[in-house]
């Protein structure tokens, strides 16, 4: 039987209270949202916080809405809610496609979008999706709030810019006309983490690529981004040939490691192929 070590438990009702409790308990306190990453680690004693601040009642962090030209997603939104959100799907089909293949319905009922990003697992799916659409993250602390581009959010595996005493509160995704998005993942079985996955967001100017975002996960891409492939595509014709070449460039520049899920060359092959497919589908959607 896996039992976490002792900790104190507090439940916060709003963001102010979360910040006050984090300040009171100090650096050994941790926020718990869905708990589907943190509790397993505590059960294995890979994490042993002194105090847990439960944010499940902080309903002000549960929303998905459009404000001006941005899609706003509160960090307490459950995976299941993002999966079913018509407004998210309307602007960014990538979210529905990514959510459909994250874990399973029971985990999705509990796990949150903010918890996933803060966990910063190198195989996490939403990191690639948010990187592709060039989201930014809003972080609150005692002094106020700051906004960080998602492409600067991850410091390393399991490490983000969210510091002690801080709370991630919101994701903002800029909505620009003429674009669409798609997500492609290969896993070993239903509900499993990615062997490799790619998300693409593309904006067209006539037949050409005006702008593009490519996110990669599980293949060691820096900041979950295929920057060189994006660079190559900008201004080029939005056709199969360009997308195939972008896939080759993405494969070349990522750095997968071998593990129980698969060897390096297979993951690299997938990174390229999935990049090409995601770009092709995103462009098809952008055209209609």
């Amino acid at each position: 039987m896996q039992v976490p070590s002792h900790f104190e438990y507090e439940r916060a009702a709003d963001v102010e209270q979360v910040l006050a409790l984090l300040a009171r308990y100090g650096p050994e306190a941790r926020v718990v949202a869905g708990g589907h990453s943190l509790l397993p680690m505590m059960k294995l004693r890979l994490a042993a916080p002194d105090a847990l601040i439960d944010i499940n009642d902080v309903s002000e962090l549960s929303y998905i809405r459009v404000e001006r030209d941005e899609l706003l997603i509160g960090t307490l939104v459950r995976h299941a809610e993002l999966l079913d959100s018509p407004v998210a799907a309307e602007h960014f089909p990538i979210f529905r496609e990514a959510e459909r293949v994250i874990a399973d319905p029971l985990v999705r009922n509990r796990g949150t979008v903010g918890g996933s990003l803060c966990q910063a697992d190198p195989s996490e799916d939403l990191s690639a999706a948010f990187a592709a659409v060039r989201a930014s993250a809003v972080i609150r602390n005692a002094e106020g709030s700051r906004t960080v581009p998602l492409r600067e959010f991850h410091v390393g595996p399991y490490e983000t810019v969210v510091g002690d005493g801080e709370l991630l509160t919101e994701f903002r995704v800029p909505i620009k006309p003429g674009g669409s998005s798609a997500y492609e993942k290969v896993g070993r079985r239903a509900g499993d983490w990615a062997l490799a996955a790619a998300g693409a967001a593309i904006w067209l100017d006539g037949g050409n690529v005006a702008d593009v975002g490519i996110g990669l996960t599980a293949v060691g891409a820096a900041h979950f981004v295929a920057a060189e492939a994006e660079e190559y595509l900008r201004g080029r014709p939005a056709d199969d040939e360009s997308f195939a070449q972008a896939g080759r460039i993405a494969a070349e520049h990522c750095r997968p490691t071998a593990d129980q899920r698969g060897p390096v060359d297979y993951k690299r092959h997938l990174a390229g192929e999935l990049t090409t497919r995601a770009l092709r589908r995103a462009a098809e959607r952008a055209r209609t």
């Binding site: 439940r11 708990g35 509790l39 397993p40 029971l106 985990v107 509990r110």
Partner: peptide, 24 residues
């Protein structure tokens, strides 16, 4: 949190109760 034999409803949705604290 892999097998789902512990599934119960928490506030009307099924969750894996081995990955939820009783205090939650």
């Amino acid at each position: 949190s892999n097998c789902g034999v512990c599934a119960v409803w928490l506030d009307d949705v099924p969750v894996k109760s081995c990955t939820v604290l009783a205090v939650m």
